[in-house]
């Protein structure tokens, strides 16, 4: 059965995000740092009258930082808290069939935890990421 996925560029890679995890797509303003928090926690940002926790996916995935900071973010709600996951760019929302990772494919580093399958966009496999994994302190829901 097809589900809606959001195709985005995140930490320099094209990824697909289950639209059920996406609350909204926003441009965030000034980010207030949170000293002493994990490095994935970029800081806090105001979103209308709400405060969201901004997550830096590069730090969460353990990959090198992309050159410039994008103000784009995908807002997701996990355990009652709103998080804004920074993304490089957003492409499209479309229905896809998710398939599990083919046998033998082991993803490197942080991607291994976040990746939970692939979708195919014009013949190109795109990794489906679970946003919960990027958020420290939130455990992925057992499938």
């Amino acid at each position: 059965m097809s589900r809606l996925f959001l195709i985005a560029h995140l930490a320099g890679r094209a990824v697909a995000i289950d639209s059920a995890q996406v609350d909204s797509v926003v441009d965030i303003g000034a980010i207030v740092p949170v000293p002493r928090a994990d490095k994935q926690v970029k800081g806090l940002a105001a979103l209308r009258s709400r405060v969201v926790t901004v997550i830096d996916p590069c730090a969460a995935l353990g990959v090198a930082h992309s050159s410039e900071d994008s103000a784009r973010a995908v807002v997701t709600r996990i355990d009652g808290h709103h998080y804004a996951i920074q993304v490089d760019s957003l492409e499209d929302v479309a229905p896809f069939d998710m398939v599990p990772l083919a046998s033998g494919i082991v993803l490197d580093g942080g991607w291994g935890q976040a990746g939970c399958g692939t979708v195919e966009l014009d013949g190109e496999p795109i990794l489906v990421v679970d946003l919960r994994v990027l958020v420290p302190g939130a455990l992925p829901i057992a499938a």
């Binding site: 949170v34 405060v51 808290h81």
Partner: peptide
């Protein structure tokens, strides 16, 4: 408002506000 677990884990914040 309560902060996200990742922030509460630092142990030095009690919440956040706007």
């Amino acid at each position: 408002k309560p902060s996200a677990p990742a922030i509460m884990m630092t142990g030095i914040y009690a919440g956040q506000t706007l």
